[in-house]
């Protein structure tokens, strides 16, 4: 029997607020802590053969898959199955993992049903965490006391992703819906159904939407349907991106560009008009997580169904490959 880590799939990643660590979680319930200082500025004399391997590898709780990660100033927030847990950064970067700082249980209707916390979005000003869950709902928790503040109920299947911007939150679900929510009222005020749009739909892949993101005036979303750019107010599909993918799992705005990835050989950076600006080759069969930061340095980490995590410091080509094994 081979070690299952050979078939590792990384579902989520996040950077620590200090910028020194990259955290990644996989379907086996493991969290890998990579020391970015050591990877990006290696001291040749101290270089060990496993410098591009995790500094620490923690197995969380019962081994349920790590579905999502988010980071706040004080905590690493981990979304697994049926619970969201917060961990002190100190304990995460320590070689031995202690107890979580706090745990929020998500009660499911039946004992059978397990609720994956598929996506987490942290609203910094409000100090609230939005959790897109497998039971078709988005839960909003206040991090001050861990109380459930709000529940967004509207999707008919589980939710893939959640993202927010300026009192608006956007969620994308397996049911093919992209819903816009008002954070103040907790009501959905708009929704998109990309699979009903003939230009966007791809029935052979499915109607599910893997990812949706909010920009100032734009929405980008994709999944079974093609990656497409929608105008926020008119809700018209402005650009349908023509890229050879078999499903989009990651899409977001960065610097007048759309970054998107999924079941494809590349991670794409596209202009709003649909031109491909950068094609980044990726190790993963399917990209499930691509996170980008511009401070303290430019860094793009791409992970997915592979034990390898690709690191780009220029956003233009693959610099290094980390091994999550």
């Amino acid at each position: 029997m081979l070690d299952k880590i050979i078939y590792n799939t990384v579902l989520c990643q996040t950077f620590s607020p200090c910028g020194k660590y990259l955290i990644a979680g996989n379907i086996y319930g493991q969290i890998a802590v990579f020391d970015l200082d050591c990877i990006l500025h290696p001291v040749i004399e101290l270089l060990t053969p496993d410098y591009n391997r995790p500094k620490h590898l923690h197995l969380l709780g019962n081994g349920a898959q790590i579905c999502s990660l988010a980071s706040t100033e004080n905590f690493l927030i981990v979304g697994t199955v049926n619970e969201i847990s917060g961990w002190d950064w100190k304990s995460i970067v320590h070689s031995k993992l202690s107890k979580p700082a706090w745990v929020i249980k998500i009660t499911s209707q039946s004992s059978f049903e397990q609720t994956d916390v598929n996506s987490l979005w942290y609203a910094e000003e409000e100090n609230k965490i939005y959790a897109a869950c497998g039971d078709n709902k988005v839960y909003v928790y206040h991090l001050e006391d861990g109380k459930l503040v709000n529940t967004f109920d509207g999707h008919k299947d589980y939710i893939h992703s959640i993202h927010g911007r300026a009192q608006q939150v956007i969620s994308a679900g397996e049911d093919g819906l992209v819903m816009l929510w008002d954070t103040r009222t907790g009501k959905s005020h708009n929704k998109l159904e990309p699979h009903t749009n003939a230009k966007v739909a791809r029935p052979d892949i499915g109607k599910w939407i893997g990812s949706a993101s909010l920009g100032d005036d734009w929405i980008v979303c994709g999944g079974g349907p093609r990656l497409s750019l929608w105008h926020l107010r008119s809700l018209d599909a402005v650009t349908v991106f023509d890229i050879p993918d078999h499903g989009i799992h990651v899409s977001f705005f960065h610097d007048d560009c759309v970054v998107a990835g999924g079941a494809a050989k590349y991670l794409y950076q596209l202009s709003y008009s649909g031109e491909v600006k950068v094609e980044l080759p990726v190790s993963a069969t399917t990209v499930y997580s691509a996170i980008l930061r511009t401070s303290p340095n430019n860094l793009l980490a791409i992970a997915g169904s592979s034990p390898e995590i690709d690191i780009c410091t220029s956003f233009n080509y693959r610099d290094q490959v980390l091994h999550f094994r």
Binding site: M1, D3, Y7, A263, S305
Partner: peptide, 26 residues
Amino acid sequence: AGINDDIRDIERLLNTNWDEENSGTH
């Protein structure tokens, strides 16, 4: 498996020790 995650998932199940309950008989 190189281009499709579903096939990769099946290979994982067949080739690795992930599926503990089936570990007795290979």
